[in-house]
Computed example of a mutant assay.
Amino acid sequence: MEADLNAQIFSLAKRTADMLVKMFGSRCEVAVHDFTDLKHSLVYLAGNVTGRKVGAPITDLVLTELRKGPADIQDIPNYKTSARNGTVMKSSTVFLRDSEEKVIGALCINYDVTQMLLFTNDMEEFLGVDPSQAKAENFHTTVQEVIHDMVDQVVSGFKKAPAHLLLEEKVECVRLLEEKGAFLIKGSTEYLASVLGVSKFTIYNYLQKIRTQNEYQMQE
C-alpha cells in the first residue's frame, strides 16, 4: 500500500511538472527527484534549462536540507540559482512526503531569468534620470489651465486666503510669477488680479517695479 501511495505521489508530481512547463514556457524547467537513490535522484524532467538529464544526482542545496530532521525540513521558495552553463534562474523546491510525513522526494522549479536580467539592466539605464535635474512639470490642455495652475501654486504657498495677503506678500506673488515666466502668457495679469482682489493696473505697477529693480541689480 505504501509503495502504491508513493507511486501516486510521484505520478502527481510528474503531471504537475508537465503542467507548469506548458504554462510558463520554454524558460521553465521542473525536475522531480526520488530520494531512494540520491546519486541518481532525478527521475523526471519537464523542460530543460540546466542541461541535466534523467539520472542526474541530487543538488547540494537539497542535500543540506536533508541533513535536518524530517520535521525541520522546509520547502524552499523563490531563491536565486545558476547553472554550470551560466544560466541565472529563480528556483523553488517543494519536498514530497509520504503518509508518515517522511521526505521521499522533491519537485524543483527552475525558471531562466537571464534575458530578463539583461533587459532589466537596459530598462534601468533607459529609465534613469539625472537627480540633479529634478523638475516639476505639468501638462495642461488649455492655456487657461497653465495660468490658473501657476497662480494657484504661488498663492497657496503663503498658507492664507488671497484676500488676507499683505501688500508685500502680493508683490512677492508677482515677483515669483515673473520668475516663472507667467506674464509671458496673455491673460495671466487679469487672472492674478482677480485672485488677489486688486485691479490689473495694480499688478502692472507691481510688475514694473520688480522689473526695474531686476534691471538695476543686473547693472551693478
Rank of each mutant, 00 (worst) to 15 (best):
G51R: 10
K39H: 15
Q74P: 03
S41V: 00
A136Y: 07
A46C: 11
G25Q: 11
M116I: 11
K200Y: 11
G51I: 04
G157H: 04
G187I: 04
L45P: 00
G157R: 04
T36H: 09
L167V: 08
I185C: 08
E125D: 08
A56F: 07
D149P: 04
H40P: 01
V21R: 01
L107I: 10
A83Q: 03
H40N: 13
N78Y: 01
V195H: 04
I210M: 15
V43W: 09
H148T: 13
D72P: 02
T87C: 06
R27N: 15
S132H: 05
E179N: 13
K22Q: 11
K39C: 03
E29C: 00
G128K: 15
R175G: 10
T64F: 10
S92I: 01
L42T: 02
L107C: 08
A71W: 03
I9V: 08
A3M: 12
L184H: 06
P57K: 11
C173F: 09
A3V: 08
N85V: 01
E2P: 06
S156M: 10
D75L: 02
V146W: 10
Q219W: 12
I109W: 13
V151S: 07
F35G: 02
A56I: 03
R15G: 05
L117Y: 15
A56C: 07
K68D: 07
G86Y: 00
R52T: 03
G128V: 05
V151M: 06
Q213C: 11
A46G: 11
G187R: 06
I104M: 09
S132E: 12
E179H: 15
V88S: 09
R97Y: 00
M218C: 06
P57M: 15
E220R: 13
T87I: 05
V155F: 00
F95I: 00
K135Q: 12
S156D: 08
L63E: 10
Q74H: 13
I147W: 09
A31R: 14
E179V: 04
I73C: 01
V195Y: 01
Y216T: 11
F201Y: 14
E220L: 11
T189R: 14
L165G: 12
T142F: 09
F119Y: 10
I147H: 06
V30T: 05
D149R: 12
H164K: 12
E101I: 02
D75Y: 00
V30F: 02
L117F: 12
D98R: 00
L176P: 11
T36V: 08
G55A: 06
A13G: 04
E101P: 01
K135D: 01
L38S: 14
K160E: 13
L12Y: 13
L196A: 07
E124S: 06
L167W: 09
Q74W: 01
M19I: 04
F139L: 09
L176K: 14
Q217D: 08
D18R: 06
E145R: 05
H140Q: 13
A71F: 03
A161N: 14
N214A: 10
V62D: 05
V174D: 09
L192F: 14
L45A: 02
K160Q: 15
I58C: 04
I104D: 07
D75F: 00
A83V: 07
N48W: 09
Q219M: 15
I210K: 14
T16H: 02
N78E: 05
E145Q: 13
